[in-house]
């Protein structure tokens, strides 16, 4: 390489981003590159809506699948089980977003950002009874890495029969609404139970600023 082309390569390195084999040279530039990528993606216009995922597509995975939606983030994701420990199950997407259920009730999340780090709450039977008074407590990490606990007083009440459609299949269910309040703040979780007691669908709080995760059990375990 001639001297001038070396210089040009060097200038490009400096101008565009840092070069080298270090894993973390200049994250500022990394962030700018990411932002630039985002901008170029955006410049191509709105992304085409993802192709409709059918029940057949999901059945091909040959594992249980939960369809998750975060309405506030306009996001849809599909979870498969990766860990079972007693009544605690952790489900994950392939890009490492996880939801953990204790007794089928969402108890932790990871990978979303403002995750539920730990929590305590009602049993599935309490919710299913449609007549329960209980406490819930959620622990989050704040923007300064400190754990903050928010505790709520909750009641669960049956809201009567309801038909829910989960990826093209209708299910007859009993609708249960859980209302929780704490110091003026409140939220509502919803659950749809089938006759056999199976929780088919739920809408459970992630964090108040972000809203709920909607979780539909699409493909059940064998």
């Amino acid at each position: 390489m001639s001297r001038s082309s070396l210089l040009i390569a060097g200038l490009l390195c400096s101008a565009l981003a840092a070069c080298g084999n270090q894993t973390e040279i200049s994250p500022v530039l990394g962030a700018i590159t990411q932002a630039a990528k985002g901008a170029t993606t955006k410049a191509k216009g709105p992304a085409a809506p993802p192709a409709e995922v059918t029940r057949a597509d999901l059945a091909q995975l040959k594992v249980p699948v939960i369809k998750g939606e975060l309405k506030s983030g306009n996001a849809t994701f599909y979870l498969v089980p990766i860990s079972v420990k007693g009544n605690v199950q952790t489900w994950s997407t392939s890009d490492k977003l996880t939801v953990t259920f204790r007794d089928s009730v969402m108890s932790e999340t990871r990978g979303f950002g403002p995750d539920i780090m730990q929590s305590s709450g009602p049993t599935l039977a309490q919710l299913r009874s449609g007549n329960s008074t209980h406490r819930r407590s959620y622990v989050y990490l704040d923007g300064g890495d400190q754990l903050i606990r928010i505790s709520y007083d909750c009641t669960a009440r049956s809201a009567g029969p309801a038909t829910v459609t989960v990826v093209g299949l209708q299910h007859s269910t009993t609708h249960v609404v859980e209302t929780c309040t704490a110091n003026g703040a409140s939220f509502t979780n919803e659950y749809w139970f089938e006759n056999g007691g199976k929780l088919r669908k739920s809408k459970e709080l992630l964090v108040s600023e972000w809203g709920h995760l909607e979780l539909a059990r699409v493909i059940d375990g064998g």
């Binding site: 992304a47 975060l70 996001a75 849809t76 994701f77 979870l79 950002g113």
Partner: peptide, 16 residues
Amino acid sequence: LLASSLLAIGVHQGAH
């Protein structure tokens, strides 16, 4: 399918 489509997340991360 299993890769989440969480592109929109991050806009409103003002939690807490």
